[in-house]
Amino acid sequence: MPRSPLRALVGGTRQMLAAQLFVSVVAVALAGWTLAVSNELMRERDRLRERVVQLEGELGARGIVVPAAPTVVPTRADGVYPAEIGLYEQASSDPGFDPRQIFSDLFAPPPVLRTLVVHARGERDAEAAQRLTEELRVDGELEVVVHVIALRDPHQSGYSYYDGRQSRHAASLVARFNDSARRAEIPQWSAQLRGTALPAQGEFTADRLDIILPPLPPAPAPALPTP
């Protein structure tokens, strides 16, 4: 005997109600479990607070001063950007978001690299870097600056450029520096350096390249006079 449409409708409604009831039971159980976990965490927090107060009281009774919590000073991506040297500070203002400029940059060639900043670790390394960069100064459009940083400066050795389109040009300029170091028989500076692309900001403009050199070995000690 064929099933009547009314019975089919009633059967479908019952199945829907059963499914809704099941989902409701699961939701209530999940809410109860969440409430129990939250209450346990709150009780644990209260116990920890009481323990801290108890420990501070014991330390105070023994004459031990509890040190204050250290102050965290926010810094700007420390260790990522090279050290600032004060170039072009007047052009460090943020131009803001310009969709037309971003769209045009996708199809425009990268800006010419006009500034090379070489960070040398110590005066002795800076003198050697000055000699090596003489060949790069032949390009009239390239300004080369040798900046002295501390021997134990935390910045990693490598080079940084500030426009993703400068990858090939930056690598080519660094390779020329490596070739100069190879001819000068400075193996520490002739090895390939790791490049990093960073967003342009402040004095780190799209036409600038920074090279952080690894330290050179100390100068050999003078030979002792023979008796």
Results as ranks from 00 to 15, higher is better:
residue 80 V to Y: 06
residue 110 P to H: 07
residue 166 Q to P: 09
residue 214 P to L: 04
residue 191 A to W: 07
residue 182 R to G: 11
residue 183 R to A: 09
residue 219 A to M: 07
residue 154 P to K: 04
residue 133 T to I: 02
residue 166 Q to Y: 02
residue 95 P to R: 00
residue 34 T to W: 11
residue 62 R to Q: 10
residue 7 R to G: 08
residue 204 F to W: 05
residue 182 R to W: 04
residue 195 G to L: 03
residue 168 R to M: 14
residue 103 F to I: 14
residue 88 Y to M: 14
residue 149 I to R: 03
residue 157 S to Y: 05
residue 176 R to F: 05
residue 190 S to R: 03
residue 51 R to T: 08
residue 136 L to F: 01
residue 70 P to F: 00
residue 116 L to Q: 00
residue 173 L to N: 04
residue 140 G to I: 04
residue 2 P to S: 14
residue 50 E to D: 15
residue 66 V to S: 06
residue 146 V to T: 03
residue 208 R to D: 01
residue 147 H to Q: 09
residue 116 L to S: 01
residue 80 V to S: 06
residue 7 R to I: 13
residue 180 S to M: 08
residue 96 G to Y: 02
residue 89 E to F: 10
residue 116 L to R: 00
residue 74 P to N: 02
residue 38 S to L: 13
residue 163 D to T: 03
residue 146 V to S: 01
residue 115 T to F: 08
residue 108 A to F: 02
residue 177 F to T: 05
residue 123 E to S: 06
residue 78 D to R: 11
residue 73 V to E: 10
residue 126 A to Y: 01
residue 142 L to D: 01
residue 178 N to P: 01
residue 122 G to Y: 00
residue 52 V to H: 14
residue 111 P to Y: 01
residue 115 T to Q: 10
residue 192 Q to W: 09
residue 189 W to D: 03
residue 45 R to F: 12
residue 65 V to Q: 09
residue 145 V to G: 06
residue 2 P to R: 15
residue 100 R to E: 11
residue 217 P to Y: 01
residue 68 A to E: 15
residue 53 V to R: 15
residue 164 G to E: 05
residue 174 V to F: 02
residue 175 A to V: 07
residue 14 R to L: 12
residue 145 V to A: 05
residue 207 D to T: 06
residue 130 Q to I: 07
residue 195 G to Y: 04
residue 147 H to E: 11
residue 165 R to I: 02
residue 26 V to H: 08
residue 163 D to W: 06
residue 115 T to I: 09
residue 17 L to I: 08
residue 204 F to Q: 03
residue 11 G to L: 14
residue 196 T to A: 15
residue 15 Q to H: 12
residue 47 R to P: 09
residue 118 V to C: 00
residue 64 I to N: 06
residue 44 E to S: 15
residue 135 E to I: 07
residue 80 V to M: 05
residue 35 L to N: 11
residue 81 Y to W: 02
residue 78 D to W: 13
residue 20 Q to C: 14
residue 227 P to F: 11
residue 98 D to M: 05
residue 194 R to T: 12
residue 82 P to T: 04
residue 175 A to Y: 07
residue 84 E to R: 10
residue 99 P to M: 06
residue 160 S to D: 11
residue 112 V to D: 07
residue 28 V to K: 10
